[in-house]
Every structure is written in structure tokens, then in C-alpha cells.
Design a protein around this nucleic acid. Structure first.
Lengths: 213, 213
DNA sequence: GCTGCTGGTATTGGATCCAATAGTGGGAGG
DNA sequence: CCTCCCACTATTGGATCCAATACCAGCAGC
């Protein structure tokens, strides 16, 4: 019975990232406790953990809810990613093993096979986070994960709205990135990555509908 | 009796930032509880909050301790600051009032008056964070604060070691930054700021003694 | 003399109960 | 009929007690 809070946190995390709990929705301690079979105390701890990950926000005596972000906020958070992820990649690249690179190729193959939106988001996330696997600086990786977490919902809405006709761009970018990684070229890799994020940010800006809800 | 956890968190925060509790030191729940007159439960919540701020790290069943960072980690965290703080400044600049700018001038005056290390760290922190006051993107400001928090101890050790003979450089940089802010020149301001952080990072790299202990 | 086990102790994690607070609905007064 | 206030309820915050786990010291066996 180790770490009930970790279990609860995990359940809530997948529920939020999966879209079951959307922005603005409230998360009641009692309800979560009953659903997960634990008492309210580990739920409280789990909520604090998730707050640290940027998945919920906690207000005293008002409870926890999934944050609702404005377009401006998401835009700035994408700019943060443009700045930070190339750094993480540069830290990670020397540590990536041939096995990691093979797995990345595998993931990209599966992304190109297609699937529903949830499947793509999952694979895409796994792909990028795997490229940062070698980054040994906790603060950097956790910040990157936080940014991914907080913007996940809007990415989902965006992918749903824009449909599959622009998917070839993503695939081309991923392939170029992967090739640069295989060549151990940190400059090229960083450039492709920054461009990938920047393009997404700009396309997101053309879909204001994503932020109304 | 609202929010005992917030009170406890505040006490611990100033203790850690002030250097009373150093890197590697353990923080026992019971001890903190007695010292602050609360029970252990709010202490647990406070520890989770501080973990979110990067001030302590929590391991299951092993307790909380102030993280001990390697030179490489601090170096990367300074690189993160170089990337993120100009962004925060650009967001903030249009929102800064004449009053804010006056207060910044005041703070810099007081920095130039001199004082002990703790005083300088306090004023320097207040100066920089005030320049980000207009940044309305929570994730960005909280990330910046986290980076300041985590590296505070090493900054203190560095300032103590290097003494006051290089203080004129800091003052010149602050004055140039402030002037750019008054002129509402975001490009200049971002450049001076990035340079300020970068120089500090490099000088820190010349003092490996800071990271042993 | 060293190593590995085993018991004790210190410390953290979890459950239950009680207190405090915010949000809400109904009633009285204008 | 509208508004303001008050009490009620739903929900979160805190205290105390109990359980589980990690650390440590001492002992036995090799």
C-alpha cells in the first residue's frame, strides 16, 4: 500500500491529459477519494503534486480546478518551449543511445500510420519527451513537462480542428529532427525543433476558436 | 486561523532563501511543526508547496531536504534564465508604470549604497522580480521565480567569495537595463538582461568552490 | 575481523474526526 | 417586485491517532 497519493495523482493526471476533465472544471476532493478508494488526505497531496506539474490550480477554501488559459498565455508558453526545448535537446543529445534513436524511429513510424487524435497526441508526446531523455537537469526537464501538460488540452482541440491534411508537415519536421539527432548535429536539431514549435504556435494563433469554452 | 500551511511555507521559505537551511540539509516534519506551533499536517502541505517552488525535494518515506545542485545544473539553470527572463521582460515592459520605474531607481540606489551579502541578495532579487511585475503569464513568472529560488544559495556563496571589487559591473549593468526600460526599448533591455545573466553564469563557472560542501 | 541478518526506533504516510469558510437559497423589509 | 441579510449546506483545512517504511545498531556466524 505504498504511496496512495502517487496512485491517485496518476489517475488524475491521465484523466486531465486525456481530456476527461477539461479546463475550468472543478475537482472535488471527496469525489476523487471515493472514486479511487482512498481517503481525502492522499487526494489533497495528489492535488498539490498536480499543481506543481501545472495540471491544476488550487485556491484556499475554493478547491482545485483545471486552469483555463487564454490565447496569449498559450502563445507565451509556446515561446518558452521554443527557448527551452532546444536547450534540453542539446543537453540530452550526447547521452542518447542507439537504442533511443531506434525507438524514436519506431514512434515516428507509428505516428505516420495515423490514428485518432488521442493516439497522435500520446505518440507525439512520447516522441518529443524521449528526445529529452538524456537531459540530466531536473529543473529543465520538469519545466518542459509542465509546459507540455498545461497546453495539452489546447493542442488536442487544435489537432481536432485542423484535421489530417497538414499532418505531412509534422512528419517532415519530425523526420528532419530525427535525422539531425542520428547525425549528432545539435545545431541542426535545435533549429528544426525550434521551427517545429514556432510553426505550431503560429498555426494555433490562427484558430482562436480553440480558446473559447 | 486561515491557512496555517501558508504561514509555515513562508517561514520555511525565508529560512531557506536566507541560508539558515543549506543544501543537503534535511527538513523534519515534526521539528518544523513544533517550531511553528502547528500540527504536522500543514507542514506536509507546506513542504509540497515548497517542492513546487524548487526549494526542497521530497522522496517518499525518506523525507524532505534542500536540494544540492552540481555546477552543471546551476549552469544550465542560468542558461534557462538567459532564455526566459528577456521573454518575461518583453511581456512586462508595456505594463510597467512610471511608479514601478521610480521604485526600480530607488532599489538600485540602495544597492549602490552597499551593505552585507544578505542585503544585496534581497535587493537584487527585488529589483529583477519587480521588472517582471507586468508579466501576466503565470507559468512564465513562476518558472523564473523557481529558477531564482533554486540557485539562491549558490549566488550567495559566489557573492561572498568574489567580494565587492566587481560590484561596479553589476551596477553598470543594472543602470543600463533600467535606462532601456525607461526608454521602453525592449530589444536593448532584453540584451542587457541576457548579458547580465550570462556574465554571472560564466563568472560562477570560475568558482568551483561554491559547489563543494 | 568482517559481513549479513534482525530487531528496535525514528520518521513519514494514511484514516477519521472536528473546525472553518465560501457559496446559496429563502425570508423579511423597503 | 427587488434587494439585502442571515442561516444552512457543501466543501475544504487542521488535529490527532494509527500503520508502514527506512535507518541504525548490535549480534551471530563465517
Amino acid at each position: 500500500m505504498t504511496a496512495a497519493s502517487l496512485r491517485v495523482a496518476g489517475q488524475l493526471r491521465t484523466a486531465i491529459l486525456g481530456g476527461t476533465i477539461g479546463p475550468g472544471e472543478r475537482v472535488r476532493q471527496e469525489e476523487v477519494a471515493q472514486r479511487s478508494g482512498a481517503s481525502r488526505l492522499p487526494v489533497r497531496e495528489a492535488l498539490r503534486m498536480l499543481a506543481a506539474e501545472g495540471l491544476i490550480e488550487n485556491e484556499p477554501h475554493k478547491g482545485a480546478r483545471v486552469p483555463r488559459l487564454s490565447m496569449r498565455e498559450v502563445d507565451v508558453m509556446y515561446r518558452m518551449r521554443e527557448q527551452l526545448e532546444p536547450l534540453a535537446l542539446a543537453e540530452s543529445l550526447p547521452e542518447l543511445t542507439a537504442d533511443d534513436l531506434a525507438r524514436l524511429g519506431d514512434l515516428q513510424d507509428r505516428i505516420e500510420q495515423g490514428g485518432d487524435v488521442g493516439r497522435f497526441l500520446e505518440l507525439d508526446r512520447e516522441f518529443h519527451l524521449l528526445t529529452y531523455r538524456g537531459c540530466r537537469v531536473e529543473q529543465l526537464t520538469s519545466t518542459v513537462v509542465r509546459l507540455w501538460n498545461s497546453t495539452q488540452h489546447y493542442r488536442r482541440a487544435f489537432v481536432q480542428l485542423s484535421g489530417p491534411e497538414r499532418m505531412w508537415v509534422v512528419n517532415a519536421e519530425h523526420r528532419l529532427l530525427l535525422d539531425a539527432l542520428v547525425r549528432r548535429d545539435r545545431t541542426d536539431a535545435g533549429r528544426f525543433l525550434a521551427g517545429h514549435i514556432r510553426r505550431t504556435r503560429i498555426e494555433l494563433g490562427h484558430h482562436p476558436g480553440v480558446f473559447e469554452g
